[in-house]
């Protein structure tokens, strides 16, 4: 861990798609520090580059220039094998569409990262994790037998099971109704508050960003604003303001 308590450090990230006249610059010089044990939200109108930023921070995509460091490891130039190891042991993902494997039960889905690594979970820890996401009596159901909210809980548990350094959540409430969405946000907040988990979340909903410790606003590929400890309405207003520009 860095002395400053940052888990992810990004410097001067640019991302250009295409070449010459038809080139699109999704990111134009973004630098970010993600603090340990905090929930950082990234917001912005569509086309702002927020998803691109997260993909790059998470190592799913490579920047055109700039660097990303996760827990001291420079990931921008890592080879695939090393990146894979990083994803296995240090990074967790929560997707908008849950991305559960339909043929596995909830329990098997949660354990999957460990199975891939060839490890078995510590029984107590596992039980606690299941309990904290409220899935104890759903463990043997397949995704098709679970509601949207339950599926996302499974996904969150899966992301947390290997106790990663950072969890990247891509619009985690995007596919849920507002009540269920709130429950999920509550769960994410809980994991930060009680387990000290670091989370980076991309969202376009002010309600979701409201649970964050810090909200970064992106527009046209650059960070244009930052808010800390703001209320939902403040966050929403700032969003509208930026979108109107």
């Amino acid at each position: 861990m860095n002395e400053n308590g940052t888990v992810v450090v990004a410097r001067e990230l640019t991302r250009r798609y295409g070449e010459g006249e038809t080139a699109v610059d999704a990111l134009r010089g973004v630098s970010v520090d993600v603090n340990k044990g905090k929930l950082t939200a990234v917001m912005g109108p569509s086309g702002s580059g927020k998803s691109t930023l997260m993909h790059i921070l998470a190592g799913l995509d490579k920047p055109t220039s700039g660097s990303v460091t996760i827990e001291g490891t420079e990931i921008t130039n890592l080879k695939d094998a090393e990146l894979t190891k990083l994803r296995r042991d240090h990074i967790g993902f929560v997707f908008q569409f849950f991305n559960l494997l339909p043929m596995l039960t909830a329990e098997e889905n949660i354990r999957l990262p460990l199975s891939i690594a060839g490890e078995k979970p510590d029984k107590e820890q596992f039980a606690r994790l299941i309990d904290s996401v409220g899935l104890t009596d759903r463990l043997h159901h397949r995704p098709a037998e679970l509601s949207g909210g339950q599926q996302q809980r499974v996904a969150i548990a899966r992301a947390l099971v290997s106790q990663p350094d950072v969890v990247f959540a891509d619009e985690p409430t995007g596919n849920l109704d507002s009540k269920t969405g709130s429950e999920i946000l509550e769960l994410l907040r809980q994991s930060v508050a009680e387990m000290g988990q670091t989370i980076v979340m991309v969202t376009h909903e002010a309600r979701a960003a409201a649970i964050a410790d810090r909200v970064l606003y992106l527009a046209d590929g650059q960070i244009v604003r930052e808010l800390s400890g703001a209320s939902q309405s403040e966050i929403g207003e700032a969003m509208e303001e930026i979108a109107a520009r």
Partner: peptide
């Protein structure tokens, strides 16, 4: 792709 994000190697 999901498997790969969970750390499955090629």
């Amino acid at each position: 792709a999901t498997l790969r994000t969970l750390g499955a190697s090629r």
